[in-house]
Simulated assay, not measured.
Amino acid sequence: MKIFNILLSGFLFAFCVSCTNPLATNRKSDRVKIVNQGVQIDYTDTGRGDTTLFFVHGWCINKTYWSNQVVKFNKRYRVITIDLPGFGKSGKNRKVWDTKTFSNDVNAVISQLNLKNVILIGHSMAGDIIIQSAINDPVKVIGLVGVDNLKSVGIEHTPSKQDKADYNKAIDEVKHHFKSFAYKYVNNDLFFKTTGSEVRNRVLKDVANADSVIATACLLQDDFNEASKLIQTKKKIYLINSDVNTTDTTGFKSKNIPYKIMYVHATGHFPMIEKPEEFNLRLEQILAGI
């Protein structure tokens, strides 16, 4: 699973919600306990409509990061947000933290809430998760939207000896000094120069409070072939990415993967909370095309 973007002497790694709308009443099903393979999944379920927007957060954060989107979209759609197991208020009582397992969690929520016409919206590492979830349930999942992710799909890179040495050094730091590594990485690489202190402090606090064992296990997953998986979905991928770091579309084009990219100008890795109005406009435009 490609989780975080960090350049170590030329070697690129791919890194890697919503509080209940105070203006809308939670559906009765919010009181239903959702469990997948013994792990409880915390979620919100608001709004009504024949199409469901299902938001999935990224690494070390939680469903409250989608609060602006819940308020905006639950007037016309059924809107679901979840805390992925291991994060937020969901359970931690398992040992596997990879794309396949997380995608099964998403599908479990779809099944247990009997959701239909689901558009999955996944931030950061959840880009891979929603792709696999669409493969798992190609009938109920009708659309895929990635948020600041999938920026080098299908691009091959052969690491040099120095790249490998830098990689091993980084992994050692992640395993033995997680909090200092994560704080340094997030603070230096996931914010833009204009990212406000409120956003910075929020993200850094959530990273600092994350379960380091689970967070590290997520980072070490790197076996998800995004290009082949996207082809397998037989669906167009829509992206809402920050325009600060380039999205390389070469792989999409060379492998004939249907895609559409919209950009949110001058944000860090969290456009949905940094510029929610602009983000929501881009998502509205995408929804009109699905």
Rank of each mutant, 00 (worst) to 15 (best):
G146F: 01
N225K: 09
S124V: 04
Q37R: 08
Q69R: 06
D45F: 00
D137I: 03
I237L: 11
S133H: 00
F102N: 02
I237F: 05
N21I: 06
S29H: 02
D172L: 07
H265D: 15
L120Y: 05
R78A: 08
S111C: 14
F279V: 02
Y183V: 09
N107I: 09
E226I: 04
T194D: 12
N136R: 01
K33N: 09
T99F: 12
R282P: 01
I129W: 03
L115S: 05
F178G: 07
V79L: 04
F15W: 05
G49W: 02
E226P: 00
K75Y: 09
K164A: 13
S133T: 04
R282Q: 15
K100Y: 15
V244T: 11
T267H: 00
N256I: 11
D50W: 00
S160T: 15
K169D: 12
G146M: 03
S254G: 06
D223R: 10
K234Q: 10
A170C: 14
S242P: 11
P85L: 12
N280Q: 12
G154P: 04
C19F: 11
Q69W: 03
V35Q: 09
Q285C: 10
T101H: 09
S67Y: 01
V106T: 05
S228W: 09
M272K: 04
N107R: 07
T158S: 15
F73A: 10
K72R: 12
D166G: 10
N104P: 01
V70W: 01
D243G: 08
V199W: 02
Q221L: 07
L7N: 13
C16Y: 03
Q232W: 08
N168A: 14
V17R: 10
G143V: 06
I130V: 08
E226G: 01
I273M: 11
M125D: 00
K184G: 15
L8F: 12
M125L: 15
K140H: 15
K234L: 07
N188H: 12
P258G: 09
I6M: 10
W66C: 07
N62F: 02
G146T: 04
A215Y: 00
I3T: 14
V244E: 05
D45C: 01
S29Q: 10
K63E: 03
